[in-house]
């Protein structure tokens, strides 16, 4: 029987058209998606180029080495020494990582190896919540809770004096912020380990802790290590909490209880003067560039060390 007149003919004549349209959509969308893929590189390139181009004025006036080592920061006198902020940043980063890392690793071990059933779900979702709380809220809670704690109890207990705002305060709060971040990355790499590792180790008579210490922490080592380095990057680039809690003082801090300045908080606290002195603007953009480069080095180092450890602690 012949195909029903109208419908059949329509379907046949339409088919090439429809295919054509699909192919056109396919072609056009592939350009768009290629563009989106390259956008990541373009964005990165644009950021680096803009920051480099904008920090040329300051680098041409003062030598980079001189600025990095000078301790005198006074934009009004055209003195741009980053040393106080660098020392502050190092203080904060080292202190908060020293407090946060052991706790993060132990808590990750608890979640991955000890917690079971509902407890595990509860603890790990609470840690997700902690990781999602905006840092400005940590800053506010720091002002309400940690500042009086450091000023009235911790500093007197250690025989020093503190106004409450300072490097220790920032480090405590940053430790709280960075811990959940490191925990979730470490738990991921611990949980990715095959059960055979645990079974084999327990089977040859190791205790649970010996299994964790000598087998699991090593096998998950590359992942945990890069979690720690990413945590470093986090603390290093943290802006809001230092700006709220560090006290804003551009002198080299004598003790961790002093007020100070980190590189990002320098940007925040000095931007008011930006418009009046063009060179300050350039100096602060240079600080931004420094942050970017150092975080980039952290990431790159994390990747290299991860590869190396993966070879070394192969299982």
């Amino acid at each position: 029987m012949a195909p029903t007149t109208d419908n059949g003919r329509n379907a046949e004549t339409n088919r090439p058209d429809r295919l054509g349209r699909r192919l056109v959509i396919e072609r056009l969308s592939s350009y768009w998606i290629l563009g989106a893929g390259l956008f990541a590189i373009a964005l990165f390139g644009l950021i680096v180029l803009t920051l480099v181009q904008q920090s040329i004025p300051i680098v041409s006036e003062h030598s980079l080495l001189e600025m990095l080592t000078s301790t005198n920061w006074d934009p009004a006198q055209e003195e741009f020494g980053f040393m106080p902020a660098i020392v502050g940043t190092i203080y904060v980063t080292v202190l908060s990582m020293a407090m946060g890392t052991p706790i993060a690793i132990l808590a990750a071990i608890y979640i991955a190896e000890y917690a079971e059933g509902r407890m595990k779900v509860i603890v790990s979702s609470f840690i997700d919540v902690l990781a999602a709380i905006p840092s400005v809220i940590f800053g506010l809670v720091g002002l309400i809770v940690v500042v009086p704690f450091v000023g009235d109890y911790l500093a007197p207990a250690l025989g020093t004096h503190s106004i409450g705002l300072g490097i220790v305060t920032v480090s405590l709060v940053m430790a709280i912020i960075v811990t959940p971040f490191m925990i979730s990355l470490s738990v991921e790499s611990l949980e990715a380990l095959p059960d055979e590792l645990r079974e084999a180790s327990l089977g040859v008579g190791a205790t649970k802790w010996e299994t964790i210490r000598s087998v699991l922490l090593r096998a998950a080592g590359p992942g945990i290590f890069s979690a720690i380095l990413l945590g470093f990057g986090r603390v290093f680039g943290a802006t809001i909490v230092p700006a709220m809690l560090i006290g804003g003082q551009t002198a080299i801090p004598e003790s961790p209880f002093d007020a100070g300045e980190t590189l990002p908080s320098l940007i925040v606290n000095d931007f008011g003067e930006l418009m009046s002195i063009p060179l300050t603007q350039s100096a602060l953009i240079l600080v931004g560039l420094l942050l970017l480069v150092i975080v980039w080095l952290f990431n790159f180092g994390a990747m290299l060390i991860r590869r190396r450890l993966q070879r070394r602690w192969q299982y």
């Binding site: 893929g37 390259l38 990541a40 590189i41 964005l43 990165f44 950021i47 803009t50 920051l51 990413l230 990057g233 986090r234 290093f236 680039g237 943290a238 802006t239 990002p264 940007i267 925040v268 602060l284 953009i285 931004g288 942050l291 970017l292 975080v295 980039w296 952290f298 990431n299 990747m303």
Partner: peptide, 19 residues
């Protein structure tokens, strides 16, 4: 591209602000 995305992912927000 993943490498660049990782770098962007770890970039401090203040750098985006300055940019």
């Amino acid at each position: 591209i993943n490498m660049f995305l990782n770098v962007l992912w770890g970039t401090p927000p203040i750098v985006y602000g300055v940019f």
